Simulated assay, not measured.
Amino acid sequence: MARGGFPGMGNNKNMMKQVQKLQKQMEEMQNQLKESVVEASSGGGVVTAKVNGEKEVLEIHIDKEVVDPDDVETLEDLILAAVNEAMRKVDDKSQEAYQKMTGGLNIPGMF
C-alpha cells in the first residue's frame, strides 16, 4: 500500500475538487443567464419582445402605426415572430455559455 492512503486516491481527490469547481461555475453561470434579458423585434422594429433567461416574456412593445383593427392577423404574426426570435436568442446564449464552460465537450444531457 502506498504511503498516506490507497494508491490513486490523490487523483480522485483532485478530480472531485475539479468537479466541485465546475459545479459552482455552472451554478454561477445559470444565475447569470436567469438574470439576462434579450430583445428581438419583427416587422422592421415595429414589434419588440424582451425575454429573460428563464424564457419569461417581460415586455412587448407595439408601435401604434402597426395596429390596424382590420388586419389583426398581421399584428399577431409580428408578435409571434418577435417572441420566438427572443426565445431563440435565449437558447443560443445558454448554449454558447455552456460550450464556453465545457470547452466544447459534448456531454450528453447538458443541453
Rank of each mutant, 00 (worst) to 15 (best):
A82V: 02
K64R: 15
L58H: 11
Q20M: 14
F6C: 12
A2Y: 06
Q25A: 09
Q32T: 05
S36T: 00
N31E: 15
R88W: 13
V67P: 07
V19Y: 09
Q23S: 11
Q32I: 03
M87Q: 10
Q18E: 12
E85C: 02
G8T: 01
I107G: 10
T102I: 06
M87F: 14
L75P: 04
M1C: 11
A40E: 05
M9I: 15
L80Q: 11
G5D: 08
T74L: 15
L58R: 10
V47R: 02
K17C: 11
I79F: 07
M29I: 07
E76N: 04
K21I: 00
V83Q: 09
P108M: 02
V90E: 07
L58E: 10
Q23R: 10
D71N: 13
Q95D: 14
M26W: 09
T102Q: 02
L105W: 01
K17D: 12
T48K: 08
A2E: 14
T48W: 01
G53Y: 03
E39P: 03
D91G: 00
K34Y: 10
G5V: 02
F111M: 15
E54I: 11
D70E: 15
V38I: 00
K93F: 11
I60E: 03
Q32N: 13
N31T: 10
K89H: 06
E39H: 00
I62V: 07
G104I: 00
K89N: 04
L75F: 07
N11E: 13
V46E: 06
G10W: 03
A86L: 05
S36C: 12
V57R: 07
D68W: 05
V46R: 01
L75V: 01
M16I: 02
V46G: 02
Q30F: 05
K93R: 15
G104D: 03
E59A: 08
E96H: 05
N11A: 14
V67F: 11
V37M: 11
G45E: 08
A82P: 02
D68C: 09
S94Q: 14
G43L: 05
E96T: 01
V38L: 03
F6L: 15
V51L: 01
D63H: 04
E27N: 11
A82H: 00
S94A: 14
D63S: 11
V57A: 08
Y98S: 00
V72C: 08
M26Y: 09
M1K: 12
N84C: 00
D71T: 04
Q25R: 09
V83G: 07
A40T: 01
M16P: 05
N106M: 06
V57I: 05
T74C: 12
E27L: 09
E59T: 14
K89G: 01
D70F: 13
K21R: 12
L80A: 10
H61W: 10
M101K: 07
E65N: 08
V83T: 08
N14G: 12
S41I: 02
G44D: 06
S42R: 04
G4W: 10
N14D: 14
K34V: 00
Q99D: 11
G103M: 00
P108I: 01
M9V: 12
